[in-house]
Design a protein around this nucleic acid. Structure first.
Lengths: 219, 219, 219, 219
DNA sequence: GATGAATGAGAATTCATTCAT
DNA sequence: TATGAATGAATTCTCATTCAT
């Protein structure tokens, strides 16, 4: 996959084609890199233009303001973060496969998000950093979460609680613990302490085990 | 406790007295508030001056640069975050009390950090936000952690693993999971979703239970 | 010659074309005037902008720093000050013409520099003033002098000493006295006491005579 | 002579006692050093205070403004520069000693000013630099020159012209050439090229010879 | 007299944005 | 569509000066 393909892919939501001119792609790429490195507020549009190899004015031909450029990066990414739950097969499988378990579910989730974070690390970094300052980003996330993830996640939990596999905690608590634990691992792994020697597979499995023991119904 | 006492208290490390002039305290207070709200890079020194009710020049009389002002806020806070481990009694108790357990330890840790985050929320927010951009902050944290926390934390874990209370996971993994889980709860509670209806006591207890079940030695 | 031509001409070294945009020329003109009047340190970029009729930001688009603006004025001028020695004909004539004498040489030098100082007075003023504070300017002058002037000047002196026309003083001493005397006249005439009634031709001739009598070989 | 004595001496004009408090002397000393190094405009009062070891406010207790501090340095120095002509003996000797000649006069002048410049170099530097920007300094110099030096200098020249020792040039021209030549040597020696290897005595003698040959009446 | 905290105007420089080409 | 010169408001920081102690 060449340099621009990953961008095209990220920005393409639900198979809708996105046309990115050459310059536009370079601007986005440059902006993502710099926002991730220095933060939105500390990155100047002229730096972005320089790194993208375009004129300063060109950025504003495509994005009316600097903020709009940020949102152009952030909005499709929000959808992609929610992606597994948007895939019809993903949740269906959980219910339909007779062998499946909550453990399999979070293992699939963990693996899927691990690959995602690894691939789109700079974007994740932007998220982590800018969510705090831009309430509109935070709201978008919450909306997408509530509309596309929450309900499905809850059905999964209900299902496994009915099967007696999960402790009788409120679904919200289980959701929070699951997400917190997975996100906590990924943030530590890729952002907080990326330089440690990580045995990813083992550490992920341990994290899953911890979570499962923590959440399973006590016999 | 009046407005300035909490600041005085925060900046006081290890009982050393800190003399803060009236103006200086107001500058720090204003800076903490604004950095927390809008981020360091997006906050101008003139805004800080205005909110603090001082002339802009006054800020630079006390702090040579804007960055130095940030560090003046951040450095003592790092120590305070590490505080429970710096308190002699805290760790000692864990070993000496015959009734103690890892569960009691993390319960104490959770309660202690819960109060801390609640009290100094704006500072925590600054941390969460600026660590990403300022490698010197990150390094300070890592140094303090390695010098003051890691060893003690490890001894606690060794102790309870020998007592057969904790699973035979590497200490590092247990430390990471413990911190991630507690920090994950506190961040969700106070920063990500502060507007939800939280039954703090119950949720903390559940989080502790989840962690304990996840980490305890399987019989 | 209109207002901008003299600037274009000054900045053009050795026939290399210099493209100065309209605004850029106005900035340089304004800067030269103000630096000459008030000195570099006492002139603010906002004043320069105002006099040049451009926005303050425009200055910094063309010159990264105020210092760079100074150097853009000063560097080509240094070459121009050395100019007569850079002209092939100038020194050649001295040796080839059978009628030439050291007196003719310094007369040519005096006339040439007189016209130069008269024409570019503000720049000379800047030089006189700023050399003291900016060692880089001083070094540039010394380098240009050593590389382009000193050797040629010395050859002229050797030549006329061999012809028995000049006293047997060290060449360095003769160079210093010649330059000091000419420069001393020009500074007094144009900078220290420009308001006196000067009969330029007569005073120059007297200066030349004084110098020649002072330097000629005693019979 | 200790550190402060030279200052006391410089500031004392015509035997009038000057009372300089300890702090005041330190301020003047520091100001002289810094103005000489970086120029008046580029030196801040806080730097002066720091170098003088006094509080910022103390400077303004003694000198209402920064400019006044400059003038406090510059004004007595102007008198001292004119000093030899102020000494009754100096000019009288020229006329009364039967052995004296214009050469002896300029030799005395040269030696006297050589010692002065050597001793008070920083002050000379301030002069050289600030005269250009402060017309009041320039005016002071001209006034002192016209009132105290010019007439006496002219009498000296008239005297030696009548004795047939000096060429029949206008007195003004001879004065200018004499001063230019002496000042030119001293500036080159101490300010422009102080790092060269100078054989001061020889070079001064040569300068005097050059000047004398240049100015003497042709037989 | 001396201090040094405080000031606010002003310094150099940066920046998002516009617009004529 | 792309450019990049131009803008002027805003930013960080400095400075001469004041004034309460």
């Amino acid at each position: 996959m060449n340099d621009e393909q990953w961008l095209q892919e990220l920005l393409k939501i639900n198979d809708e084609e996105v046309k990115l001119s050459d310059k536009q792609a370079k601007i986005l790429e440059a902006a993502i890199e710099m926002f991730a490195e220095k933060g939105y507020a500390a990155t100047s549009t002229s730096e972005i233009a320089k790194r993208a190899g375009v004129a300063e004015g060109t950025i504003f031909r495509h994005y009316k303001t600097k903020k709009e450029l940020l949102m152009a990066i952030v909005t499709p990414t929000i959808m992609k973060i929610a992606a597994p739950f948007l895939a019809k097969e993903f949740v269906k499988e959980v219910f339909e496969s007779q062998y499946s378990s909550y453990e399999d579910f979070i293992r699939a989730l963990m693996n899927n998000r691990y690959e995602f974070v690894k691939k789109y690390l700079p974007m994740i970094r932007i998220f982590w950093q800018e969510t705090a300052f831009h309430s509109d980003i935070k709201e978008q996330i919450q909306t997408v979460f509530m509309e596309n993830i929450y309900g499905k996640f809850k059905r999964v939990i209900d299902h496994f609680q009915q099967k007696g596999e999960l402790a009788d905690l409120p679904a919200n608590t289980i959701i929070r613990m699951t997400i917190t634990t997975i996100a906590g691992f990924l943030l530590t792994r890729f952002i907080l302490l990326p330089n440690l020697q990580w045995d990813d597979e083992q550490e992920m499995e341990r994290t899953i085990q911890m979570l499962m023991h923590g959440l399973k119904k006590e016999g």
